[in-house]
């Protein structure tokens, strides 16, 4: 049973269309991320669910109730902002209890719930501090606790980790997922960071120019992108022009060499066919049953756990990611190398 439904949702600002014919059904307790580049309409969609923007057309329902035109303060939808938006004149405890006070909950109950929420985010000691006395990561945890304190029907997070440094971002990401699963709360998460979306979500909605490109589980989005945009936006992708495509045999000519690929069931050949392959699918050296291409290393980029090579194969340039190992012997720029990949790892666009 769908808990949150967005049906034919559109939003226009004057002549500009921010969101167009958006349809999404979210189950109770599901974590769905809206992923896309700036200006793709993900935040506008979130703001329509929160009630800060009214849809130009379409309908929003939560648990069967139509909330499309309901004011934001009557929706019981919690929201976490990129800028934390903690109330600077209130202590941490008062911030968390604010929504409960507005609901005229008895004081002892407010105190109890506030403590519960602080325990959930492991910040019990900070109850009497003011927001400016906490770090960015701590402030965002409090913002999360505040949004959860009112037991919202849906939790909305608008790029909550964007203002934090990389290490805190990863820590807080795990924390958000843990809390979401503990409370089994239906969550919509907006981000432009694919790693965040893929690691946190049950499903990811990839958006571009106001419409949905693909909805699917993180693995589906990454391994089976349904459009060229998704393939390019999510993860790194080599897209190499090919000729003489033979769908029956599953072969084509790439940089003057014949390679094999697995055609999809309803595969059609575009006017400019290209073979798509992820950098991590490429290996140095040959292997049995693998496509092998002779090339020359243009550059070697050390990224810590990964080493990224740029390899020229005739006129095509491949990006290949190798896992770093302590004793690894890396090729140098100008070295002749063979790169190989299995036919299952590439697909035709």
């Amino acid at each position: 049973m769908d808990f949150l439904s967005l049906t034919n949702l559109s939003k226009t600002f004057g002549a500009a269309t921010a969101v167009e014919d958006f349809n999404l059904d979210v189950e109770k307790g599901e974590f769905v991320s809206l992923l896309g580049p700036s200006g793709c309409g993900k935040t506008t969609t979130l703001r329509m669910i929160a009630g800060f923007e009214l849809p130009s057309t379409g309908k929003i329902t939560v648990d069967g109730e139509d909330i499309t035109n309901q004011p934001p303060n009557q929706r019981n939808v919690g929201m976490v902002f990129q800028s934390y938006a903690l109330f600077p004149n209130l202590t941490i405890g008062q911030n968390i209890g604010f929504g409960l006070e507005v609901r005229k909950m008895p004081k002892p109950d407010i105190q109890k719930r506030t403590l519960e929420m602080l325990e959930l985010v492991h910040l019990e000691k900070h109850i009497n501090k003011y927001p400016y006395q906490l770090s960015g990561g701590q402030q965002q945890r409090i913002a999360l606790a505040r949004a959860l304190a009112i037991s919202p029907r849906v939790l909305l997070l608008d790029e909550p980790l964007s203002a934090l440094d990389a290490k805190i971002r990863v820590e807080l990401r795990l924390e958000i997922r843990r809390i979401q699963q503990t409370m089994a709360i239906t969550t919509i998460y907006v981000t432009h960071d694919q790693e965040e979306a893929l690691s946190l979500s049950d499903r990811v909605v990839v958006m571009s120019q106001g419409h949905i490109e693909q909805i699917g589980a993180p693995t589906d989005i990454y391994n089976d992108p349904s459009t060229e945009f998704v393939a390019q936006f999510v993860g790194q992708l080599n897209m190499i022009p090919v000729t003489e495509v033979d769908l029956r045999k599953g072969t084509c000519i790439l940089a003057g060499q014949r390679v094999k690929f697995e055609p999809s069931p309803n595969q059609i050949i575009s006017s400019e066919p290209r073979l798509a392959i992820r950098p991590e699918e490429l290996h140095l050296g040959t292997g049995e049953g693998r496509n092998a291409l002779q090339g020359r290393v243009e550059s070697v980029q050390f990224l810590g756990s990964v080493v990224r090579l740029r390899v020229h194969v005739d006129s095509a340039i491949f990006s290949a990611d190798l896992f770093n190992e302590r004793r690894i012997t890396l090729p140098r720029a100008g070295d002749e190398v063979v790169i190989s990949f299995p036919e299952q790892s590439c697909w035709l666009i």
Partner: peptide, 23 residues
């Protein structure tokens, strides 16, 4: 940040009177 504070308070159930007086 007037806009974010107002929206945060609204999402917690506050009306404009409460927002003005409390925040």
């Amino acid at each position: 940040d007037v806009v974010s504070l107002t929206q945060a308070a609204q999402s917690l159930g506050a009306n404009f009177g409460t927002i003005l007086i409390r925040l």
